[in-house]
Amino acid sequence: MFRLPRLAATATAAAALTVLVAGSPAIGGPPVPDPHVVARFDYARGETPENIALDPDGSANLTLAFARQVVNVDKQGTKRTLATLPAVANPSTPVIGAAAALGIARADNGTLYVTYATGTSETGIWRIPPGGGVPVQIVRLPADGFPNGIAFDEECDTLYVADSVRGTVWSAPREGGTPTAWATGTELRPLPAPEGFGVGANGIKVHNGAVWVSNTDRKTLLRIPVRDDKSAGAIETRAEGLNWIDDFAFTGRGDTVLAALIMDDEVALVRPDGSRETVLTRQEGLSNPTSVAVRGKSVYVPSASYFTAVKEPNLLLAQFRKLHGQGTS
């Protein structure tokens, strides 16, 4: 997620997700059957879907950035509020100026971990119990940072957070405590103005023995190997030229991803060799997509409509017959 202050009215931002609409080409298969809006949200109330983590039953847990809420949406579109992050009296969040619930990750037992950016001591990782409840801050991150995407490595009980402003991947144990600057480097940093918008490391996933990170300003998808001692290996650039990349999701066991390109109103299929093709555009209903979730043949994309004239935040769902990369390729 990123936001450009006062670009349109008082709020302009970057974050969200959107899926696939009728007539879209399938990825490695026929057209997408029956893509549809599962749920709609109220932009005026700050209900801007920012990030997503799926439950085993196919329901979606979403952060609503400026409402500071986490909600669950089932496949019929029924919404249930799981938690509300505490209000902050005088937020001074870098880039956006407002307090925002951003990334979300789910443990196998149903516990949710959410990043909260406020510009205050409340900035950090917050834990929400299975089924919802009172959120508890378990990791405090620098107030002058912008903790954006979050990923959870269940195997080694480690949380990873992409800090868009500080150009850092933070790690912390699942129970919380003192964070570690796990990975840093030019590849993770934002570009200075006017080249960039101050948004570096953004989306983040743990996949195939590595932590993968997108850099919005640098238009790149990065892979950081996890060494045997759990330290970070050398940062590898896996794809370039991904204009306005936000968050992303792997399509299967392989290294192919679906990437949300927020300002281009596109979702791109990015192959392991770095080549890409656009598979969804604004003509098919995308409105500033910022993240993607994949479960089997189902693809979810929430949309926050941060930059569009018509504010229609929503969650869309589509089924693909086959997604490239679901094998080992």
Rank of each mutant, 00 (worst) to 15 (best):
D255W: 02
T256F: 08
T256Y: 11
T256A: 15
L258R: 06
A259M: 12
A260L: 10
A260S: 14
L261A: 11
I262Y: 07
I262E: 10
M263R: 00
D264H: 01
D264V: 00
D265M: 01
E266G: 04
V267A: 04
V267Y: 02
L269Q: 14
V270M: 09
R271W: 04
R271V: 05
R271N: 12
P272L: 09
D273E: 10
D273C: 09
S275Y: 04
R276S: 15
R276Y: 03
R276K: 15
E277L: 11
E277T: 15
T278W: 03
V279F: 06
L280F: 04
T281I: 07
R282L: 07
G285R: 00
L286V: 12
S287V: 09
S287N: 10
N288F: 00
N288S: 00
T290N: 06
S291T: 15
A293T: 07
A293Y: 02
V294A: 03
G296E: 11
K297P: 08
S298R: 09
V299T: 02
V299E: 03
V299C: 02
V299G: 03
V299D: 00
V299H: 00
Y300C: 04
V301H: 00
V301E: 00
P302S: 12
P302G: 14
P302Y: 05
A304N: 07
S305P: 01
S305A: 15
F307L: 13
T308E: 14
A309L: 11
A309S: 13
V310E: 15
K311Q: 13
E312V: 12
P313E: 12
N314P: 05
L317N: 04
A318K: 00
Q319T: 15
Q319H: 13
Q319G: 09
R321S: 14
K322N: 13
K322T: 12
L323G: 09
H324N: 08
G325I: 00
G325Q: 02
G325L: 01
Q326V: 11
Q326R: 10
G327I: 07
T328D: 15
